[in-house]
Computed example of a mutant assay.
Amino acid sequence: MKKKNLLLIISTDNVDSILKFPLLYGGVSIPRGYWKRVHIMFWGASIKVAASKKKIRKEIKQMQKNGVEFSSCIVCAEEYGVVKSLEKIGITCNHTGELLNKALQNDKLWATLTI
């Protein structure tokens, strides 16, 4: 059985790295048929970047049009005070450990990469 879902976890605050790997690859993965489902999870320092950098926010909105899902660690988002800012651009703020745990325990369905 071939994996169909990709979970990309971003924890870096390096804007260039975020744009050139997880957002670039994640953004083309559904249209090109690499993956059926792509979920990008912001964790830690990357949350501040997603909330504040226009270039990142613009890319997220475009990727959502192609079916890419986004979430953010609610604990981190609350600590940074950016929950409303993230939710405005369609990033769900929740307990991301639940999806991460599910993906890690079911490696027949999910491929997981951390950046």
Rank of each mutant, 00 (worst) to 15 (best):
V38M: 06
S46V: 05
K48I: 13
E79V: 04
D13S: 08
D107H: 04
I47T: 12
K54S: 14
H95R: 15
I60F: 04
D16G: 07
N94I: 14
Q62W: 01
A103Q: 02
H95T: 14
K20D: 13
A77W: 10
Y25K: 08
T114H: 01
M41K: 07
E79R: 12
D107F: 03
C76R: 05
A103M: 03
I91W: 02
Y80D: 08
G26R: 01
T96Q: 04
F70G: 15
G81I: 04
P31K: 07
I74Y: 13
K20W: 06
S85M: 13
V28L: 13
A45D: 13
T12H: 04
K4A: 06
K2W: 01
G26D: 03
V38R: 10
M63P: 08
L100E: 07
A50S: 09
V82H: 08
V83D: 06
I56W: 07
Y25V: 12
T114W: 00
V38H: 09
N101Q: 10
L99R: 10
E98P: 00
T12Q: 04
Y25C: 11
W110Q: 02
G27P: 07
M41V: 13
T96N: 09
I60N: 10
M63E: 11
G27T: 11
S85Q: 14
T12W: 03
V49A: 07
W110L: 01
P22D: 07
N14T: 04
E59R: 15
A103P: 02
A50L: 10
E69A: 14
P31V: 05
V83C: 09
W110R: 06
K2P: 06
V83A: 10
S29E: 02
D16P: 00
E69G: 02
V82I: 07
T112P: 01
H39F: 12
D13A: 11
